[in-house]
Computed example of a mutant assay.
Amino acid sequence: MNPKQIIIVGTIAIVITLSGGIWTDKANAGSKSPISPTQKVNIEVQDALLQLLGASSNDEVQEALYNGESLADIAKNNNRDVQHIIALQMAEMTEQLDSRLAQGSITLDQYQAQRSELAEIVTRSAYGLNGS
């Protein structure tokens, strides 16, 4: 696999995981807290991902992805189980799909189609495999 493809796929996976509630920020606009509930959840997810990867910072993960490693490679290099990373990403993406369905931004058919492909997409992404 081309290193650029690995970087793109890995980055997409991280962005999806870290931006779980980005579309709900308008609902939190009236919050008096400097950190909205969405940001707190994103920080917790980010911390969980770093912990599962065995990485100390986002920069460390981004550097590894830039150097052609996949999330699975990062986890393996840190004696971590990639299945936990896949489970975290599955949970986050499923939550996003559930939210989109509840908000009416996707139909039930779209939800079911996207949900049925989710495990394969997340797994391939974690291992740095492209769609071909």
Rank of each mutant, 00 (worst) to 15 (best):
L97R: 12
P37Y: 08
E63S: 12
T107F: 09
G20M: 09
Q114I: 08
N78L: 04
V15Q: 09
I12K: 14
S105H: 14
W23I: 09
S105C: 14
Q5E: 15
P34F: 13
A119W: 02
L101A: 04
I8N: 12
E63N: 00
A119M: 04
A113N: 11
L53Y: 00
A27H: 08
L88Q: 08
E44T: 12
D81N: 07
S99M: 12
I86E: 08
A91V: 10
G10E: 02
M1Q: 07
R80E: 05
N130G: 07
A72M: 03
E120H: 11
Y127N: 06
A113L: 10
Q39E: 15
G30Q: 07
G54L: 10
A87W: 05
V122I: 06
D109T: 07
R124E: 01
A72V: 02
A87N: 06
N67Y: 10
L71Q: 03
N78E: 02
Y111M: 09
D73Y: 04
D47N: 13
L50N: 00
S56V: 06
I16Q: 08
L97G: 10
Q114W: 08
S36P: 01
G54R: 01
D47S: 07
Q39F: 09
Y127M: 00
H84F: 03
N79D: 10
T38G: 15
I6C: 11
D73M: 00
Q62N: 14
N77Q: 11
L49S: 09
G68E: 05
M1Y: 15
L18G: 08
N28V: 03
G68D: 05
G30T: 11
I106A: 12
Q103E: 15
S125K: 06
D47A: 06
I7G: 09
K32H: 15
Y127E: 07
W23H: 14
I12C: 13
